[in-house]
Amino acid sequence: MNLFLQSKVPNFWAQPFNSQGIWMGVLGGLLVGILIFLGLMFMPAQFRRPVVAFCTFIGGAYWVLLYIFPAPIDLQKTEMPTGPVESIGKWLTDANPVVVSISGTVTAFMLGLGIFSLLSIHLKRISRRQKDWAYSVILLVSLVSMAFFGYADYISRQGPDGTKLDLQANWGFVNYGRDLLFDGLLQQMDAAMFSVIAFYILSAAYRAFRIRSIEATILLSTALLVILSLMGAVAFVWNDAVKNMANGNDFLMNFQLTEIAGWIRRTFETSSLRGIAFGVGIGALAMGLRIWLSLERTGGGA
């Protein structure tokens, strides 16, 4: 049993590539989609919340069912499931690629929303000649250039010899264009943006890191210990001094910097982070349930 969306044999749902059937199906589906869209637009306000709650519930129900429902044991591809339990279990397993595809596609459309918003803001700024509109032109030109060279690079690799373009020696104009914009500019600016924080950290540590309370002292001491233990040269000097003093005494060897830091890490650091993780985990589970069942007003409610 295959899910209807995965059938290899042509049927109502699955039609051969470039056939009349597939294009009729796509057109018909689009029409149905538009009707649903319009129907939702003009739907009475009291039905909005139940519709959103239903969609949210269906989204979550698949993973919950997949988790709690017994999966068929060692069922081969050629075998038919026996009984309703095994059939439902197999159906749920078969639905996996469809659910993953739907998740990815819907999320991709949502990602496009950010770009759409960015475009509308900057196009508006240019058309109205608002303050700093020239920067918006730079943004749009760079956006279009990146998309153009990126797509041209992608297309250039599609031919039978596309894999040869993995080596720079075989590149053409569009490949150099993509590399200059992506690796030469975007990636270097990405690195620069994230490294700027180092300056602020130093400045903040100098101005604000004061030993004023027990909490601040504990925090500062742990941070210092972690930092020093991860500095090979410091650890080497400390450990060497302890080794010379210990003179073979196993107990004293525990006072090597790496041993002390390791013990603190295993005993207090991991446990405190685990405590935080348990707290977050309980919160996430509760939030998950509330969103799934639309009990969270800020989640799926309309």
Binding site: G60, V64, T107, A284, M287, G288
Partner: peptide, 18 residues
């Protein structure tokens, strides 16, 4: 817009339980 967002949130919440 809450319909696709609801589906994504639903998929996330279902996984939390799992």
């Amino acid at each position: 817009s809450r319909i696709p967002i609801g589906i994504i949130l639903g998929l996330w919440s279902g996984q939390q339980i799992q």
